[in-house]
Design a protein around this nucleic acid. Structure first.
Lengths: 348, 348
DNA sequence: CTGAAAGCGCTTACAG
DNA sequence: CTGAAAGCGCTTACAG
């Protein structure tokens, strides 16, 4: 019984005699034989593995958890495993000085890489120059970088935020403010969507100014103070993400400003937590697993077809209306006093 | 320039001439040579990889996110990558029928595996019988299984819950109820800790009965109804985990039962969300990254020393007092009416 | 349908 | 200090 026959049996090669096959399987079972994938990978020049790198993050956010699951799931359908790896680097390190982790630097470990987390052009360039097939999660890229010669997956921040703003305008709001750190590209995109919706209605876009050095939640809490100061000038706020919105909600609640009776509030992301708060937040849902699935799909497409044109794929986002948004109160109606009853009415 | 010299240079072998080394590095750079780890692994009979399997879970919980990070971090220190893999199986499948994923079944893919997620004895047995080095995260194991011949890592549920209960008793509570689905082993351990603390004080342990078929959050909400019915008979509740506690908090708030003024509440886990709620929950902190680190550490110890005695390591948990627990109100004092002011006092 | 042989890209004794 | 040679466990033409 030659070794090549055993190989054929285990690779389900068609032309091998039925009884030979049985015998091989039989003997293999008795001997506890299990093929060595490393040897196979060496000769076939494929690693059956991709790498999911999460750059510059200490924790796996809920978003990244779900993206990772989406990636793992899709990879499974094409018989690939996924290595999860964190990787920290400085934005300013010149590409030639950037020390890559072994998994990426060496050959024979991964067929391709998905670049997630927060990224900067230097790292992306290194991977590109090395010739490793990859796809980049675009939303959290910081810094100028042409994306014409790479594959990127995005979710639609601008469209989502525009939609959120339009939802508020549709409810009759006019004094809608934006809250987000517009120095960061993802909040800037968010802001653009907000501005587009406002200007469409001839309304003036306005941004709540806060100090962005604390945690997002705390910044939200602080922003609530600004909202309190502005009083009647703000009837709704569009937050750059749910964590900020959660802070705003907490800050407003502490000041007895009611959501949505006094101020409507909308977040972005649709993290699970916003179901636990009172009231549950209206938000823009990002299809996180789908982002992961697309990252993987595009990577495997690239692997299968290295010469194909590069892709920039944008995944649509979706408005989820919950209980934190309502029509603004008519200016001359006195506020309802009973908090609990008021809310029961709204949520029914 | 022989291939063995190149190998020596890249493996930092000491006895290689300085100028030879330089030349090799020089030429390697010019040619863009990068070693193939797959070939190295084949000859060295090590994969430089471990597998983190998360069994029977659709999503990566916050707990598992952090455990995974802990694992990845430790693995990095010993130059190993970690493959993240979900794996679903039925509890009742006989071990011999359990179809293992390739990564585990074949040789040469991983040196060892960390079994996390929710597990049953059948899968653990298969891995054990296959002879793959592994360590099991014990807390979410369901079903009877001797752990004398395997390595397990646990966090201390019973001690934590006992500590939480003692905290309440120390505040003067007597009518402390437990809430958790005691058909599941982790809540049962929690319950045991609660019972131990109660009985120590000569108090009768009592468990809130609810239907456990909905989500944990919903079950908590429903339990709040029972609390409302019981009225003065319950001054504090010990929840089996934070998600349940969050449900209880929401349910109580909807019924205008104040936490902690009317009822004290303590959770278990210390998930991030409980900082966003009002009041922030007292809970038992599980050191999640440390659980991950220990899973990895014990696995690599096992790899280094296959004959060592098997280990059951229990990671201590820790009480975190926040604002959801306070002394019970004196029976004859009328309840304070102003919700906001009352809370400001408590939280200061 | 089956087996002997070459070869994947390394590492590691073994000579020199 | 350096190189030729064997070998890791497979796959895949190539003969038969």
């Amino acid at each position: 019984m030659g070794v090549s026959t055993v190989s054929r049996v285990f690779n389900k090669h068609p032309d091998v005699g039925a009884e030979t096959r049985e015998k091989v399987l039989q003997v293999a079972k008795e001997l506890g034989y299990r093929p060595n994938s490393c040897a196979r990978q060496l000769v076939r020049d494929t690693t059956e593995t991709i790498c999911f790198v999460m750059s510059n993050r200490d924790v796996i956010s809920q978003f990244h958890s779900k993206v990772l699951v989406g990636v793992e799931e899709y990879a499974g359908t094409v018989a690939h495993s996924v290595i999860f790896m964190r990787f920290d680097y400085a934005p300013n390190t010149p590409p030639e000085d950037l020390a890559l982790p072994r998994v990426l630097w060496e050959r024979g470990t991964v067929d391709g890489v998905i670049i997630a987390g927060t990224n900067y052009p230097n790292f992306v360039r290194v991977i590109k120059n090395l010739g490793i097939p990859f796809v980049l999660f675009g939303n959290n890229l910081i810094g100028r970088m042409p994306v014409g010669d790479i594959d990127t997956i995005w979710f639609d921040t601008e469209g989502g935020c525009r939609c959120a703003t339009e939802h508020l305008l549709g409810l009759g709001h006019q004094r809608v403010w934006f809250l987000g750190d517009t120095r960061l590209p993802w909040y800037r995109r968010c802001y653009r969507g907000y501005v587009a919706a406002m200007e469409q209605q001839g309304l003036k876009p306005q941004s709540l100014e806060v100090d962005w050095t604390s945690s997002l939640f705390e910044c939200g809490v602080n922003a609530a103070e600004r909202v309190a100061e502005l009083g009647e000038q703000v009837t709704a706020v569009v937050a750059g993400d749910d964590e900020i919105a959660l802070g705003v909600l907490t800050g407003l609640t502490r000041r007895s400003i009611r959501v949505p009776e006094d101020v409507s509030l909308v977040g972005f992301d649709d993290i699970d937590e916003i179901k636990y708060v009172h009231p549950p937040l209206t938000t823009i849902r990002v299809p996180k697993e789908k982002v992961g699935e697309n990252l993987a799909r595009v990577l495997f497409d690239r692997l299968a077809n290295p010469g194909a044109p590069f892709l920039k794929r944008v995944i649509p986002t979706e408005l989820v209306v919950r209980e934190s948004t309502a029509a603004p109160k008519p200016a001359d109606t006195p506020p309802v006093l009973d908090h609990i009853d008021e809310h029961e009415v709204v949520s029914s």
